[in-house]
Computed example of a mutant assay.
Amino acid sequence: MKNLILLFSVLCISVASKAQDVKTICNNINTLNTAILNGSIKRQDAAAQFKPLIEQLKKVADKSSSSGWTFPLKGYKSNAIGGTNGNGYSDKGYHYLDGNKHAAHPAHDIFINDRNQDCLDDRTHQPVDVLAVGDGIVIACINEWAPSSNLRGGKFIWVYHPAQNIFTYYAHNQVIFVKPGDEVKQGQKIAEVGRTGYNAYKKRSPTHLHFSAFHLVDDLLVPYNPYLQLKKAKTI
């Protein structure tokens, strides 16, 4: 019995230590991501710091995962994606290390029914939940934004999905319910749709979620078009 208790104690300590490692790594990534957005770090230095952090995260992350994707907006499906057949996506000229300064749109804008721009669904009169498309770990987010800010993503979330070794990005949120280091499950509510962000805040912009997906090339984030995955995603 004593041996079983000792083994259980060792396992608990190991799990707690791993969770703390994940949290520390994600907080470091979050700090670096903020510096990249602010332009307060040189691209070469940012790359040199980003790569080992990602390698550390890959080593400690749980790679078990659910299959497929859940559509990132509760109560909506792929016909809410802007453009025609996903043609709103354009990653030409995008580089993650450029931070807040780029002209590309490596994303799909997913629009909600919100004619009066109060961030509530016109049918339900409730906020629209933003859902994690798959199991993952929150590596960066910002839950504060002011209209005077030029930050394009507003209140955003980055999630790493270890099983697929990809990242997803959710921007313009009204409120965020996660923090760096949190593990999230497929379909879990992580935010509510909003109008935060330099352009999204303006009246000319319909209320939407800005959704992107990235894979790793030489341990740096490179966007890819997730349109087909969104089309096949199950809805909630």
Rank of each mutant, 00 (worst) to 15 (best):
L7N: 11
K23T: 14
T24G: 01
D21R: 04
V15L: 05
N28I: 00
A16Y: 07
I25R: 00
T34Q: 11
S17D: 11
T24F: 05
V10Y: 07
V10F: 09
F8P: 01
I5N: 09
L32I: 01
A19F: 02
N27L: 06
K2D: 15
K18P: 00
L32P: 05
K2N: 15
V22M: 02
A16R: 02
T34L: 10
C12G: 02
N3Y: 15
A16G: 04
L32H: 06
K2R: 14
K18V: 06
Q20T: 04
I13F: 09
I5E: 09
L4W: 13
L6Q: 15
L7W: 02
A19L: 11
S9L: 14
S9Q: 12
K2C: 12
S14V: 12
K18I: 09
N3P: 10
N28V: 00
N27M: 05
L6E: 15
L11F: 06
T24L: 04
S9N: 12
C26N: 05
I25G: 00
I29S: 02
S9A: 15
V10Q: 08
N28A: 09
S14P: 02
L6A: 14
I29F: 08
K18G: 00
T34V: 11
L11G: 01
K18R: 10
L4C: 10
I29R: 05
N30F: 02
N28E: 01
I5Y: 11
L6H: 12
M1V: 10
I29N: 00
V10C: 10
A16K: 01
V22G: 01
D21C: 02
M1W: 12
S9T: 13
V22L: 05
A16E: 05
I29T: 03
T34C: 04
N27Y: 03
F8D: 08
Q20G: 01
L4T: 15
V10S: 12
I29Y: 03
L11K: 03
S14R: 10
S14C: 06
L32F: 06
K23M: 04
I13M: 12
N3C: 11
Q20M: 09
V22W: 01
K2M: 13
V15N: 04
I25T: 01
I29C: 03
M1K: 08
L32C: 05
C26S: 06
L32D: 03
L7A: 14
T34R: 11
L4E: 15
A16H: 02
M1H: 14
N33A: 08
N30C: 08
Q20C: 07
K23C: 07
N28K: 04
L7R: 08
S14Q: 08
V22R: 04
